[in-house]
Design a protein around this nucleic acid. Structure first.
Lengths: 135, 135
DNA sequence: CTTGACCTTAAACATTGCTTTAGGGTTTAA
DNA sequence: TTAAACCCTAAAGCAATGTTTAAGGTCAAG
């Protein structure tokens, strides 16, 4: 059993983040001593690591809240429910990826068009490309 | 000369967004009639399209505020200043892209591991992968 | 003179994921 | 007993990009 400061240090999180996760229902509430202090054991730590791995994979806090719940009630839950969360996020990531790839191309094209020197910007190819080509 | 409602319609923006851009200093303030109404001309519209193209390329509001300023003062500005904005954003986009690609891989791997059926989640491969492999 | 369609503002709200602040108990060691 | 190092809460703040709400002028038509 250890206090929040130690758990925070072990996981590389701030104490405020741990309290935040608890408030958000992402992790199970810690046990409390009579003075109100939170006390944690290895199960809490394990649950936190579960959450951190999910976040590393790009899952959000609310995703992890759901997954933690499904895991805690695995007897009444299905693989489908679990996989749906992952697949939905995967679809969103792919969408975002496509958007960012489009940005990358646009920005590369703009950058390539411009000399980037001390020339006056009056004829800068970037500004011209973004402006209307009024004939 | 036309009012905000027409300009919004032409550009596919809301009136609130146009006012917001003006407040943020992203576009030049509209002219005002005696009743306080904003009035726009083709130059305003052109500047807005400039901003919208930049945003399509992934540039932020503050990027566009700067670019609009550089364009308006092109005589005292350099290509370098313009290109720096684009290149900085490009670098950020590439960073974000790398992060999202890592997410995509992680999520794909998770998804592939799980049957996604009505099976009980008690042995779900996703939950196991996120959990610790305690031997 | 009233109705509907315009327009105005300031300020609050929404989203995500925390961090920071303010104000205050508890514990331990010297 | 006092100082350092713990812990607690509620609430506000931040980042970015708008959207929504509340309250209220203006204008043209019938």
């Amino acid at each position: 059993m250890y206090q929040i400061g130690e758990l925070a240090k072990r996981l590389g999180l701030s104490q405020a983040t741990l309290r935040f996760y608890e408030r958000e229902g992402i992790i199970a509430p810690a046990e409390r001593a009579d003075n109100g202090y939170r006390y944690y054991n290895s199960l809490h730590e394990r649950q936190l690591r579960f959450v951190l791995r999910g976040k590393q994979a790009g899952l959000s806090n609310s995703d992890m809240r759901e997954l933690v719940h499904l895991k805690a009630h695995a007897e009444e839950s299905t693989c489908r429910e679990v996989k749906d969360i992952v697949d939905l996020k995967l679809a969103k990531v792919k969408e975002k990826l496509a958007e960012l790839q489009a940005f990358e191309r646009s920005l590369s094209d703009l950058s390539a068009a411009c000399c980037g020197s001390d020339e006056l910007a009056t004829h800068c190819a970037i500004l011209e490309a973004l402006d209307e080509f009024v004939d």
